[in-house]
C-alpha cells in the first residue's frame, strides 16, 4: 500500500508518516503543498491514499482535492483530509469537493487508524487501552 502525505509542517508530515508505517503502509511520499503533491504523482505508481492538510501555501488542500478529482486517472486515490479546519461548513465543503474522510487536528493516534478502517484500508489495531483493569 502506498500513501502520500501533504502538509506544510514538516513535523506533522513526520508524525503522519510514522503512524502510517505503524498501520502497515510501506511506501510513503511526502509533499509540502498541493503543487508539490501534484508534481510527485506518477500515473504508473499512484498512491492508494492521500492525507491532505487544508491550509498550505501555493495550492491549498481544498484546491488539491479538486485537482485530484478533476483528472480521471487520479480519481481512484482515496482522500483523507487532516486539518485544524473544524467548522461544520468546511467539512461539508471538503466532502462535497471529493474528500472521502475528514480528521480534525489535533487528533489521537487511534483516530487516524479508525479513519483508515472506515476507508477500508486497515483493521483498527486491537488496542488494550481499555483493559487497564483486565485481570487475565
Amino acid at each position: 500500500m502506498k500513501a502520500l502525505v501533504v502538509d506544510d509542517s514538516r513535523a506533522m508530515r513526520s508524525i503522519l508518516s510514522r503512524l502510517l508505517r505503524k498501520a502497515g503502509v510501506d511506501h510513503i511520499a511526502e509533499a509540502a503543498d498541493g503543487c508539490e503533491a501534484i508534481a510527485c504523482l506518477d500515473d504508473d505508481d499512484l498512491p492508494d491514499i492521500a492525507l491532505v492538510d487544508w491550509n498550505m501555501p501555493n495550492m491549498n488542500g481544498l484546491e488539491l482535492v479538486g485537482a485530484l478529482r478533476g483528472r480521471p486517472e487520479w480519481r481512484r486515490i482515496t482522500i483523507l483530509m487532516v486539518t485544524t479546519e473544524s467548522e461544520q461548513g468546511q467539512i461539508v465543503r471538503a466532502l462535497a469537493a471529493g474528500a472521502h474522510e475528514y480528521l480534525i487536528k489535533p487528533f489521537e493516534e487511534e483516530s487516524l487508524f479508525d479513519k483508515l478502517a472506515i476507508l477500508g484500508f486497515h483493521q483498527p489495531v486491537q488496542g488494550d487501552s481499555t483493559n487497564d483493569f483486565a485481570h487475565n
Binding site: 467539512i91 474528500a99 474522510e101 487511534e110 479508525d114
Partner: peptide
C-alpha cells in the same frame, strides 16, 4: 472533537451533529 474523531464517519458527523 477528540470523541467525534474516533470512528464516526465525517458524513455522519455533519449530518447528525451541530457544532
Amino acid at each position: 472533537t477528540l470523541e467525534v474523531n474516533r470512528g464516526l464517519p465525517a458524513a455522519s458527523l455533519v449530518r447528525h451533529f451541530d457544532r
